[in-house]
Design a protein around this nucleic acid. Structure first.
Length: 564
RNA sequence: GCGCCAGUAGCUCAGCUGGAUAGAGCAACGGAUUUCUAAUCCGUGGGUCGGGGGUUCAAAUCCCUCCUGGCGUACCA
C-alpha cells in the first residue's frame, strides 16, 4: 500500500513531535482535489499546529526538511498556504510498485491485515414466505461484495443466510401454499385471510408439484387433505431453493443456509431458559417470560417466552447469536435493511448479555431502496407484495448491471432505483463504461496476436517476463494511469475498513476513465507502415490495466467481458 | 410522541475523523472518427450544500434549533 504506508510514516513522525497521547486520527494523506498540487498531500502540519501551539507553515517546513525530503520515493515537496505539504512521487517508485501487479496478478490489491480473523457475514436472510424483491438485491450485492473485500484483506470469511422457517409466519405461508396445492388436486378451499400474495406462494407450490407431484395429498374419508408437517418443511425448502437460485443469478452465494428450526433441536431452548434464569436475566410478567434487555442497550424489555408457552422471535435471536458465538467466529457482521434498525440495540444487548466484546459485533444498516418506475414510486410493503421481483430485474437488466448498480452508493444513502431506466441498455448505465475499457484492451491484444509482430516475444499476452522498471511514460496520461493502478491496494484496504464496496466501484470508474482517455489519445499498435508496430511500453501498461480492472470487477461480482 | 437515517447541480449520487476555486455521472449545448470497438474522448453552461443561529483563522463537514422525507417504535417474523 502506497498511501497507507506513507501515512504511517508521517504519523509516526508526528507522534514523535506531539507525544504519543495526542490524537492524530484526523491526520490524512490523500490525493489533493486539484492535481496541480501534486500526487499526494498531507494535512499533518495543520493537525499538529494546535497541539504544538505553533504556526502550521513552520511545522510544514520542518516536516519537509526532517522527514519527507529524505524519502527516496519522493521527487519534490512543496508547502502551500495554510500548511499543506504536497509532494510528487518519483516515476521510479511508481514503476517499482507496478511490479506488484505482475507478481501478485489476481491477488494484486490484497493484503493480510485481517489474517487469522474469522469473520462471519449474514446478509439478505429474507423470510422464505415470498420471493425476493429489488430491495433485497441491495443487501445481496452489498453482503457478497463485502465478503469478497474482507477476504481480499486476509480475513477468513463465512457467508450465511438465516432462514426463518419457524413460527407463525412460516405456518401461515404453509397454509397459503396448502390451499393452492389442494386447488391443483381439485379441492377448492378458501385462501387464508391476510395470506401472502398468491403469485409468490405459487412459485413454491409449482416447484413442489413439479418435483413431488401429489405426494403430500392424503385421502381422509374421501376428502383430500395435506400432511401438514412434511408439507410445511418441503414447501419452505422449495421457497428457499427459489430464493437461492435468484441470488445465484446475481452471483451471490452462501457457505451455509442456517434454518431457524435448527435452533430448537436438542432442547436448546430449555437449556437457554435455565441458563437465563440462573443468571437472573429474565423475569415473569403477565404470564410471559421477559428478558431484561433494557439494562443493556435496548429501550425496553423483550418477551422470550410468550404466555402460550411458545418462544418469541427474540428467543431465536438469542439462540442464533449464541450459536454463532459458539461456532468460534471472531467477528460477526449483520447486513440489515433500515426497516430492521430496531434490531441494532436488541442484538447488541444480547451480545452484551452473552459477554461478547462490542467490537466483535458489527451491524450494518443499509438504507432502503425506493423503487421508481416511470416517475412513479412503488410502495414498499413487506407483507403485501406488489413489489418489483428481483428475479425479473436480473433477467431484464443482467447480472452485471444489477451488481454494479447496487455497488455504486454508500449503504448509508437511501437509493432510488429507477427500474425503467435500469432496463435501458445504454451508456446511462456506467457498468458498460467500465466493462468497455476491459473489452477494448482485449481487442487491442487480439489485434497484436493477429498481426503477430516479431517484437513481442511469443506473441502471448502474458504478464510474465515484463520488467516494469523499464517502462517509459511517454505522456502525462500514461503516468497518471500507472499512478491510479498503484493506489488500488489502498482502496481495498480502505473499503474494508469502512465497509464500503462503493469505493471499489468509484475506483473502477476512475481507472476506466484514465484508460479511455489514454486510448483516445495514444495508440498501442501502429499499423500505418508495412507491418504493425507495437509500442512495448504501452502494451505493458494495458496488460497491467487489464489485470487491475479484472481484480476490482471480481470483488464486485461483475464480469470482465472479452467483447462487447 | 420517541428513536435511527437522510435533505448537496434539472436527475442519481460523492465529499461530512473541519481545510486549498464544493466534485462525478446522466440530462442540455458545442466539438473530435480514412487509425487498436464512438457503449469513447474533449469543451461549455448549471449550486442560497433544506432554513436559521452558534463554535472556529477556516463549516457542506462540528453544536443547537426548526422544516421536509424514509424507516422503526408487537407476547409478527
Amino acid at each position: 500500500m502506497v498511501i497507507n504506508e506513507l501515512k504511517q510514516k508521517i504519523k509516526d513522525y508526528a507522534g514523535g513531535l506531539a507525544g504519543i497521547k495526542s490524537n492524530l486520527n484526523n491526520l490524512t494523506v490523500e490525493e489533493p482535489k486539484n492535481e496541480k498540487f501534486g500526487d499526494l498531500s498531507t494535512n499533518a502540519a495543520m493537525v499538529l499546529a494546535p497541539i504544538l501551539n505553533k504556526n502550521p507553515f513552520e511545522i510544514a517546513s520542518k516536516i519537509e526538511k526532517e522527514l519527507i525530503s529524505g524519502w527516496d520515493q519522493i521527487k519534490d515537496v512543496n508547502i502551500v498556504k495554510p500548511g499543506f505539504v504536497n509532494f510528487n512521487l518519483k516515476d521510479g517508485f511508481i514503476k517499482e510498485n507496478l511490479k506488484n501487479i505482475i507478481e501478485y496478478k489476481e491477488k494484486f490489491g490484497s493484503n493480510r491485515s485481517g489474517e487469522g480473523v474469522r469473520v462471519q457475514l449474514e446478509y439478505v436472510s429474507s423470510n422464505p414466505t415470498g420471493n425476493l424483491h429489488v430491495g433485497h438485491g441491495r443487501w445481496g450485492a452489498l453482503g457478497d461484495s463485502l465478503a469478497n473485500i474482507y477476504a481480499a484483506n486476509g480475513y477468513e470469511v463465512f457467508r450465511e443466510y438465516y432462514v426463518n422457517d419457524y413460527g407463525t409466519q412460516a405456518d401461515k405461508f404453509s397454509d397459503c401454499a396448502k390451499c393452492i396445492y389442494l386447488g391443483h388436486s381439485g379441492r377448492i378451499t378458501s385462501y387464508p385471510e391476510n395470506g401472502y400474495p398468491e403469485e409468490s406462494v405459487s412459485l413454491a407450490v409449482d416447484r413442489l408439484i413439479s418435483e413431488h407431484n401429489g405426494r403430500f395429498i392424503v385421502e381422509k374419508s374421501g376428502i383430500k387433505e395435506v400432511e401438514t408437517g412434511p408439507f410445511k418443511k418441503e414447501i419452505i425448502r422449495m421457497m428457499v431453493s427459489y430464493i437461492c437460485e435468484t441470488l445465484e443469478l446475481m452471483g451471490v452465494r452462501y457457505d451455509r443456509w442456517f434454518y431457524e428450526s435448527w435452533l430448537y433441536e436438542n432442547s436448546n431452548l430449555e437449556k437457554l431458559i435455565t441458563d437465563l434464569k440462573n443468571k437472573d436475566m429474565v423475569y415473569e410478567k403477565d404470564g410471559a417470560l421477559w428478558f431484561k434487555v433494557s439494562r443493556y442497550a435496548d429501550d425496553k424489555d423483550r418477551v422470550v417466552i410468550r404466555k402460550d408457552g411458545s418462544p418469541s422471535y427474540f428467543a431465536s435471536d438469542i439462540l442464533y447469536l449464541m450459536d454463532k458465538i459458539k461456532r468460534g467466529y471472531d467477528k460477526l457482521v449483520y447486513v440489515l435493511g433500515a426497516d430492521h434498525h430496531g434490531y441494532v440495540d436488541r442484538l447488541k444487548s444480547i451480545g452484551k448479555a452473552m459477554g461478547l466484546a462490542e467490537d466483535r459485533l458489527e451491524i450494518i444498516i443499509g438504507q432502503m431502496v425506493k423503487i421508481v418506475d416511470r416517475g412513479k414510486t412503488l410502495k414498499m410493503s413487506r407483507r403485501k407484495g406488489k413489489l418489483y421481483p428481483l428475479r425479473d430485474l436480473i433477467e431484464e437488466v443482467g447480472k452485471d448491471a444489477v451488481r454494479y448498480f447496487f455497488s455504486m452508493n454508500s449503504f448509508d444513502t437511501p437509493m432510488d432505483f429507477d427500474v425503467s431506466l435500469a432496463k435501458q441498455k445504454s451508456n446511462q448505465n456506467p457498468v458498460y463504461y467500465v466493462q468497455y475499457a476491459h473489452a477494448r484492451i482485449e481487442s487491442i491484444l487480439e489485434k497484436i496476436k493477429e498481426s503477430g509482430p516479431g517484437d513481442i516475444e511469443s506473441g502471448s499476452c502474458s504478464l510474465d517476463k515484463i520488467d516494469t522498471s523499464k517502462i517509459e511514460f511517454k505522456s502525462r496520461s500514461e503516468r497518471q494511469l500507472a499512478k491510479i493502478m498503484i493506489l488500488y491496494p489502498d482502496i481495498i484496504y480502505n473499503s474494508c475498513r469502512s465497509n464500503a464496496p462503493y469505493l471499489v466501484t468509484q475506483y473502477l470508474y476512475r481507472l476506466a476513465t484514465g484508460f479511455h482517455y489514454f486510448y483516445n489519445n495514444f495508440r498501442v499498435v501502429n499499423d500505418d507502415g508495412d507491418r504493425a508496430a507495437v509500442d512495448e511500453d504501452r502494451f505493458v501498461l494495458i496488460l497491467l490495466v487489464r489485470q487491475v480492472l479484472r481484480n476490482a470487477l471480481k470483488l464486485l461480482g461483475v464480469s470482465a467481458p472479452q467483447k462487447m
